[in-house]
Design a protein around this nucleic acid. Structure first.
Lengths: 332, 332
DNA sequence: CTGAAAGCGCTTACAG
DNA sequence: CTGAAAGCGCTTACAG
């Protein structure tokens, strides 16, 4: 195991003090040009680079962000991570990835880890069970900014970057109204999750406001498989051309598409489909599925720029809502 | 910004030396039970945790792995990352994520970063342009084990965890032979990539060995869109029931499925499809696509266990090839 | 323009 | 059983 070059070694070789080497390498104005030249030359030659642990011990400044998500097998989070990574690298930051597995206990451990490592900032999508805001405030006390994204706490005095759930649900409802569909089936995820509630309420409200006599039915499914079974059962005798299905998420869509394909239904002829999605799954089908977009990528950009402002000193808590938009496929 | 608790503060409050506190907290046998009790109590109370930067400066042991991949928008890498993260956390390790964007220059920067941070180990899937093995050997000189996975260098004296490309291609070919198909279209990615070459050669060899009079055509596509256009053109007049298509990757499959859906072809009746995949995309369709499995998840498990052995002192270079297996859908 | 010294928070060989 | 001291590799206020 090769020892790393240090200031000490450079100093010894050039018969100057460690202080001088340190200053020369950071281009301190006090040091003479000639000394700087000599030192920089040798440093380049032996590939000196400061030990970040020693630096951090003095300056408390590493360049590391942590991203904490409930799950890693999720396209939305991937594009968020991907988006952050891209910009972070440009700013010289490295990224820690942590997964809470939607477990509050693990989440706490991770937060502690972030605190111990004195990361420069934390991006987190909290678990569905997270009620206690204290551990986050604690990070703040240690000067570590926390940016919540996607799944955010109700607590107001914090930085949140959210998907426009209401807008997305509303856009989907409006698209259905515009299409003139009179029979609508809404399929939603876990009814206890705030995101489900918001999407459910908005979708229903907009739809009924727009068409008071619409025939609207809503169901819940906790997995793609459940959604598939539900649709198969509900459409057992279906051979019409009138129904429009709204899928709250990619997971639901996946199950619904399985059922629709199994029954050999064609859209938009036999059945209409619209969903809220990041866009990856909808584009796998032909015709592509029409969706209201929730972009992890755009969310990442917003989150990072908010983070950089926090690091620059802004202590102002802010909630930013990313705009959604309708992406038309041929499924409606 | 709250100052962190330190050994010094504990020592001062209890009128003992810093050394004693340090030893007590790590349950050193020298320290009396009573002293340990007092110290541990106070430490727990003020939530003391050692500063990892100070520890590292002394012990050169952080618990951090880096994962470097060419791209983050890739299901295979995600399941690899997800797999590593899971086990790493259990061992107390944190994960840095780096993306090279398939750019050698960025890859070099990342490797340097890993060296400076003295990570405990690096998992890397190299860029298609990476020729120079020196930067990796350098990490090794600094005592940082490198585990290559998926895209690995030709160089022999290193640890590689590979997908069973030959086996997967062979399994796909055998499945087609078993099915008795006489007309086969193989669609492959970038012909300059070793992975393409291996899959191409094996697939063709096994198929022709098994059925010397088989009608076999091969084409290349560099993207899903290109694959879609290719198929649309080639199948412009197709209305038979004889063709079987082999897709080398998820990306190719995505394009092919677009075309197949567009033309309204049913499998397995009108057309047969088989691919090499991690399994996510094939399961979105009905019937599900039959595929030879390449599991990022299993690869991750293998890579991590190899890494742990390297850290434990094994300097033995080893190439491990993950087994593939055929997952039957209804597309063949 | 340069250096000696203190200190960041820890660990550990040495001494008692 | 406990402590003083050296040192990991750096930065920076102070002195000259």
């Amino acid at each position: 195991m090769k020892p790393s070059p240090t200031l000490k070694k450079i100093a010894a070789q050039l018969n100057v003090s460690i202080s001088t080497v340190s200053r020369a390498l950071k281009d301190h104005p006090d040091i003479s040009i000639e000394t700087k030249r000599k030192i920089n030359e040798l440093a380049a030659l032996i590939e000196y680079d400061p030990n970040p642990y020693a630096v951090n011990l003095r300056t408390h400044n590493n360049k590391e962000f942590a991203i904490v998500v409930p799950s890693l097998s999720n396209f939305f989070y991937h594009s968020f991570i991907s988006s952050i990574e891209e910009d972070a690298r440009k700013h010289g930051y490295s990224i820690f990835i942590y997964r809470s597995s939607n477990d509050v206990q693990i989440e706490l451990e991770i937060l502690k880890n972030c605190r111990l490592k004195r990361v420069s900032g934390v991006f987190i999508s909290i678990t569905t069970e997270t009620k206690d805001i204290a551990p986050f405030l604690k990070l703040d006390e240690y000067g570590i900014p926390v940016i919540f994204f996607d799944k955010v706490p109700a607590y107001e005095l914090c930085n949140k970057i959210c998907i426009a759930n209401e807008q997305a649900a509303s856009l989907a409802a409006l698209a259905i109204l515009k299409k003139g569909s009179n029979d609508v089936l809404g399929i939603f995820g876990d009814p206890n999750m705030p995101i489900t509630q918001v999407r459910y309420q908005t979708f229903n409200r907009v739809l009924v406001e727009g068409n008071p006599v619409i025939r609207l039915q809503n169901v819940n499914a906790n997995s793609a498989d459940e959604a598939e079974q539900l649709i198969l059962t509900m459409l057992a005798d279906y051979n019409g051309t009138y129904l429009t299905i709204f899928c709250m998420s990619d997971e639901i869509l996946t199950g619904v598409m399985k059922a629709v394909q199994r029954k050999g239904l064609k859209f938009p002829k036999d059945i209409g489909i619209i969903c809220i999605s990041d866009g990856m799954i909808p584009k796998l089908f032909y015709p592509e599925i029409t969706y209201a977009e929730t972009s992890g990528f755009k969310l990442g950009k917003l989150a990072l720029s908010r983070m950089m402002r926090c690091i620059a000193g802004s202590s102002f808590a802010q909630t930013i809502i990313d705009e959604s938009c309708l992406v038309e496929g041929g499924s409606l």
